[in-house]
Amino acid sequence: MESYKYFIAESSVNENFGDNMIILTPGDVKQRFGPLFSKKFLVMVDETAGRAEILEQCHARGTIEWDAMNRSRAGGAVAACAVEGSTMTIQARLGRYPVNFGAAAGTIGGQALEAVEVNGDEVITTWAGIAGAGVGIAACLPQAPGVIRAEYPSEDDLKVGGARTNHVRIVSPLYEKVSFGIDDTDTKQEGATWVMALKCAEACLLEGVEFLDMRLIQLNPAVPHKTTNCVGSALNFAARPGSIGALREFVCTFVEEHTFSKDTGIAFSRGIRTGQESPFHAAIKTEILTVQKAEEEAQRLGIEFLDHNGRKGRIGALGAVLWADRGIEAAGLYGEHL
């Protein structure tokens, strides 16, 4: 079977969307195609780093896994994809890029992210899909909670299924990625940092803020001054830029009001990190570090400490932020894998 390659020149991404563009709300899309399967769509942007993180949830993991493989193959704005259950996280580059559906044959189809662009307080993601994958980007994703509107180049792009190719721009609110690292809120007699961290996240009902997930970070169990497990906690949020100040204040106040320890550390990170920028990723799990070293490394990385103690909890709090997006390995000893 002849392989099918589908290229879009960088300059053509916006040329497809002219005067005949059709604009639909998620409700309009649902009315036209019936209710489908996307449960969430959210885009976080770090303009300084030129990066975006796209979060999608579906009713089933099979569709998410298929989409992730196809988008990775197609390239374009996609730098990497990760799947946990029925949730996909795309690490993407800001800008417009040519895409290539690669080895996928024309009768098999494919799916691609062509562009991620910021327009004021909105993010525009541009998509292409062939065959069944076209249904996903033209009919399913545009009706997901979190979408403001979908823009189609023409009526032909609203004809889905078969061997057709579909294009769509999905417009959503601009969010930023915000992470908190928390450590040393307990003592040998009472408390558990992970419990407080989750209570903090559940109590946060601020407008413009969405709780993403929480991770437990196994720190170095050989440190001399610790509670039994030596585990820090990370909280990840998506926040509208105007809500970040209130979120910082909420988390800091909640933790300091509910801690059992005088050594509590709270670290704050704003932006999308690559996960490769600090030797502390390994050191936090393998070495005995000082508060001074942790503060120096945090300053180098642009990570702030919000606590008012300046005590040893800052070491684990920094480690929690650094491992906040590293997957299940965060919960293990260094080098441990499932």
Rank of each mutant, 00 (worst) to 15 (best):
F7W: 06
S12E: 15
E15R: 15
G18M: 07
I22P: 02
T25E: 07
P26Q: 09
F37K: 13
L42K: 13
D46Y: 03
T48F: 02
R51H: 11
T63P: 13
T63D: 08
T63R: 05
G75V: 01
V83K: 00
E84P: 01
I90M: 13
I108F: 00
I108N: 05
A112R: 02
L113V: 12
A115K: 02
E117W: 01
G120L: 06
E122Y: 08
T125N: 07
T125C: 15
T126Y: 02
A128V: 03
G129F: 01
A139C: 08
L141C: 05
A144E: 08
G146C: 07
S154A: 12
K159Q: 15
A163T: 15
A163L: 15
T165E: 06
N166E: 02
R169V: 05
V171D: 09
F180A: 04
I182R: 00
T185D: 10
T185L: 05
K188D: 10
Q189R: 13
W194F: 14
W194R: 11
W194P: 08
M196A: 02
K199T: 11
A203L: 06
L205A: 12
L206T: 02
V209D: 03
E210N: 12
D213P: 08
L216P: 05
I217C: 13
P224G: 00
T228W: 00
V231A: 13
V231C: 12
S233K: 05
L235C: 10
A246C: 04
E249L: 00
T253D: 00
H258Q: 04
F260H: 06
S261W: 01
S261R: 09
G265M: 04
G265R: 03
I266Q: 05
I266A: 01
F268G: 00
S278L: 06
H281A: 07
A282W: 10
Q292L: 09
R300I: 10
L301I: 11
G302E: 02
L306G: 04
N309T: 13
R311V: 05
R314W: 08
L318M: 06
L318S: 01
G319I: 09
W323N: 09
R326P: 06
G327T: 12
Y334H: 14
